Computed example of a mutant assay.
Amino acid sequence: MDFHRGRRLRSSLALREMVREHEIRPQDLIMPYFVVETDDESFMKEISSMPGQYQLSLRQLEKKVGEAVTLGLRSCILFGIPATKDETGSQAYADTGIVQQAIRLLKERWPQLIVVADTCLCEYTSHGHCGLVKNGEVLNDPTLNLLARAAVAQARAGADMVAPSDMMDGRVTAIRAALDEAGFVDTPIMSYAVKYASAFYGPFREAAESTPQFGDRKTYQMDPPNGREAMREAAADLAEGADILMVKPGLPYLDVIRQVRDAFDAPVAAYQVSGEYAMIKAAALNGWIDERAVVMESLVAFKRAGADLILTYFTEDVLKELK
């Protein structure tokens, strides 16, 4: 009787590795870091909902990144927590803002490290929203200038790439024009092109201290049941000048990652968000899963779905594994 003998290529590790279709490489991974504006150089506070992740002073950020570079870290993305917040999120676009300080520090120490700056206002506004607010409404067009100013400040500090995460309509156009006018024509934009109003962001809001003080972000982030809308958002950002398209969250939206990959000839990034990290960590700490195996399987799922780049809080652990 003739039938398919698929097991022939699974009988040993060497054979499985020979025919393996996808793999995780150091250059695929982007590590997020939360940097705090503080005079306490020893400040390093573990995020309670994200075991193993920390809010870091500039000095502690330098130490953590240094250790990760030794392991093979190629790129990171920075989120800032300023000492003071205001209605317009002015520290997002101040040359002395905490992320701008961190960019200068990291690029001076490791010029070869790709430093990406998250470009948004929510970590810097007193109300916690990603744009200017008037009478309880998040304003779209008046916010664009501030996002553009933030991107230019980040590029001026030395950022290799800016990553607008706000989901305001037209922000890629505004940022691209501002960067070009300021002489940063070679600074790429990794757009959070497909960013859903997800329940998986909870731990991040503790980490970045960016919980909205009223309402939610459903009027500007995407509705989770929608898939076709993702194609419109990605197409718009690409037409406006985005160089890399990001889908966020990751695992719950593998189908969307695949749709974006199939529809657009541009690099695709996936963000394994804080809630995904927290769930894996919680299950592992309870002894319910093999953390290492689940992490690697989840990252391979992103690659199989079509992601070129993966933003994940497991980056440092995976680099140890790969090394």
Rank of each mutant, 00 (worst) to 15 (best):
T211P: 01
A293E: 15
K303A: 06
P51N: 01
E291N: 12
Q221L: 14
D39Q: 05
G6I: 03
K195P: 00
D166Y: 05
A266I: 06
I280V: 15
A242W: 05
T211H: 03
E108A: 15
G80D: 03
G287H: 14
C76V: 13
P111Y: 14
R7M: 05
I114M: 12
R304Q: 01
G136T: 08
D308M: 05
T38L: 04
A150T: 15
A207P: 08
M50Q: 03
G6C: 03
A307M: 00
N135E: 15
L147E: 06
E181A: 15
A177S: 14
S298E: 01
V162A: 05
E21W: 10
F34I: 15
A236L: 15
E233Y: 09
H4N: 11
S12H: 08
A307T: 00
K218L: 11
G241M: 14
T211Q: 08
E21Y: 10
A301M: 00
R171L: 02
P249M: 09
G275R: 12
S12G: 08
L285P: 00
A94F: 04
R171T: 07
Y33M: 05
E41M: 12
M1S: 13
M167W: 01
S75Y: 02
E297P: 08
Q60S: 09
V133T: 09
S48E: 11
L179A: 08
K320Y: 08
A236S: 13
A148D: 11
L73V: 13
K218F: 09
H127T: 11
D166V: 09
E123M: 13
A92N: 10
E41A: 15
P188F: 07
E137W: 04
F204D: 00
R176E: 03
V256Y: 02
A263R: 14
G306K: 04
R16E: 10
R109Q: 09
I47R: 09
L139V: 06
V19D: 05
A157N: 06
K195N: 01
D95F: 06
A199T: 10
L319D: 00
E108P: 04
R25G: 04
R292A: 12
S42L: 15
S11F: 03
V172D: 02
G136V: 13
Y124E: 07
D160L: 10
T38Q: 02
G275M: 13
L15C: 04
A236P: 03
D308L: 05
T312P: 06
A236V: 10
D223R: 07
D290Y: 10
E321I: 06
S11P: 01
T84D: 05
D2S: 01
T125L: 14
A270K: 00
A207D: 04
R25L: 15
L309W: 02
M231F: 10
M18T: 09
A150L: 12
D86L: 12
P26E: 09
H127C: 11
L144N: 06
M18W: 12
E123S: 08
K195M: 01
M190K: 08
E137N: 08
M44Q: 13
Q154D: 04
L251I: 15
A151F: 03
Q154T: 01
F43A: 04
A263V: 09
D243I: 12
A197G: 10
G97P: 05
R104A: 07
V256W: 02
E123R: 03
F314I: 09
S57N: 00
V318N: 01
L322P: 01
N286S: 14
A102K: 07
A150K: 11
P249K: 06
S12F: 07
D39V: 02
Y33S: 03
F302I: 00
A269T: 12
